[in-house]
Design a protein around this nucleic acid. Sequence first.
DNA 1: GTACGGCCTGTAGGGACTACAGGGTCAAGC
DNA 2: GCTTGACCCTGTAGTCCCTACAGGCCGTAC
Lengths: 140, 140
Amino acid sequence: MTQTDEFSIGILSERSGVNVETIRYYEKIGVMPIPARSAAGYRVYDLDHLRRLHFVRRGRELGFSLDELRGLLHLVDGHAFTCGEVHELAIRHLADIRRKIRDLRRLEKVMSEMAAQCTRNKVPDCPIVDALFEMRPIAQ
Amino acid sequence: MTQTDEFSIGILSERSGVNVETIRYYEKIGVMPIPARSAAGYRVYDLDHLRRLHFVRRGRELGFSLDELRGLLHLVDGHAFTCGEVHELAIRHLADIRRKIRDLRRLEKVMSEMAAQCTRNKVPDCPIVDALFEMRPIAQ
DNA sequence: GTACGGCCTGTAGGGACTACAGGGTCAAGC
DNA sequence: GCTTGACCCTGTAGTCCCTACAGGCCGTAC
């Protein structure tokens, strides 16, 4: 860890918000690349690892599986894909992403209405619930 | 299942897109309420169950844990909460939801740029990646 | 009255972590 | 130089959230 832009797994964990065991697990299943090692056998990371890990963390929080994230990373890494495949994958992910945005907007609306109602010191009697539970066909 | 708005677990599964075993699991852990039973011991559901299950399914797809969803449902069910608690919970969830929307928008941008690049038959050389991996502090 | 699809209650397995156990490394302070 | 404590290592076992049987009951159609 001589340079300022190289760091240990503990620092990577701290900066990424992903805990140490999880980072090692990601390495084992191929979501994170195998890092360099120090003389003592410690893993050595740099900013690229940090960026990748940030992405994975956020992706997980947004409901993508590790498998999907592996696919996205592979796509983004730019190897072993034809242009047509990239296009198709990107389009498929786009549909999924837009659906998630729609759903979250709806939830945001419900929550903010609920919060507003409660500030005004009214007990929420929640016919709001209907909006939250609103039914619609499942988009595959 | 005499009335048209009462149905079996198989139908509920079909209409909600949540599979049968998962529904029974949700019942076991208290995310879904204990349903009525037919004379033969079959679970009997109605539209309220369907609505609730839709919500849970979408919530899961958006990265909420079952525990968070239980909390949201509890909140929405309107019992055992003071107005202040509802407000605080709603506000906290709102922040989370808005962060997710922001992240998804960013991802949407990257993906659509990638797709557009590929339609024009250019090999994606992806400095786009920088946008995707962009770093920022973890919001707690 | 039997065949077959749907339901029942288990229990066991997989994906994505999380938490030890048991041991080595290293920098600080004495 | 030696100890102490925080950090790292490689396992393995446990948790959460499902998913997939196994073995058996119910119910309708022929």
